[in-house]
Simulated scan of single mutants.
Amino acid sequence: MVEAIAVTDVGIRFRRNRGGRRSFKDLFGRSERRVRPGEFWPLRDVSFSVQAGEAIGVVGRNGQGKSTLLKLVAGVVLPDEGRVQVNGGVAPLIEITGGFVNDLTVRDNVYLTAGLHGMSKAEIDRRFSDIIDFAEIGDFIHTPYKHLSSGMKVRIAFAVISQLEEPIILVDEVLAVGDKSFKEKCYRRIDELLAGGRTLFFVSHNEKDLRRFCTRGLYLDRGKLVLDAPITEVLDRYNADYNSR
Rank of each mutant, 00 (worst) to 15 (best):
E3R: 15
A4D: 03
I5F: 08
A6F: 08
T8C: 13
T8W: 14
D9G: 15
V10C: 03
V10N: 09
F14Y: 09
R16F: 14
R16C: 11
G19T: 09
G19Y: 07
G20F: 07
R21N: 08
R22I: 01
S23V: 00
F24S: 05
F24K: 03
K25Y: 08
D26E: 03
L27V: 03
L27G: 02
G29D: 06
S31C: 14
E32I: 13
R33V: 10
E39L: 04
W41T: 04
W41E: 05
L43R: 04
L43Y: 04
G53I: 05
G57N: 06
V59R: 00
V59A: 02
G63Q: 07
Q64K: 08
V73Y: 07
G75L: 11
V77K: 07
L78A: 13
L78C: 12
P79F: 13
E81Q: 14
G82P: 07
V84L: 11
G89T: 11
V90D: 00
V90N: 00
A91S: 08
A91Y: 11
P92Q: 03
P92N: 03
E95A: 04
G99F: 11
D103Y: 12
L104G: 15
T105K: 05
N109R: 07
Y111R: 10
A114R: 06
A114S: 13
G118K: 09
K121H: 12
A122K: 12
I124W: 03
D125G: 12
R126Q: 11
R126T: 11
R127Y: 04
S129H: 15
D130V: 12
D133I: 15
F134D: 02
A135F: 03
I137E: 06
G138N: 15
T143S: 14
Y145L: 03
K146A: 06
H147T: 04
S149G: 13
G151M: 05
M152R: 06
K153H: 08
K153Q: 14
A159C: 03
S162Q: 10
E166D: 12
I169T: 05
E173K: 05
L175F: 09
A176M: 10
G178S: 06
S181M: 10
F182D: 11
Y187C: 13
Y187Q: 05
D191S: 04
L193E: 05
L193Y: 08
A195P: 08
G196A: 07
G197C: 13
S204Y: 00
E207W: 02
R212I: 08
R212H: 14
C214Y: 01
C214D: 01
L220Q: 01
G223R: 03
L225I: 05
V226W: 02
L227D: 00
L227S: 02
P230V: 06
T232H: 13
E233T: 12
L235E: 00
L235H: 00
Y238N: 00
A240T: 13
D241G: 08
D241Y: 07
Y242H: 07
S244R: 10
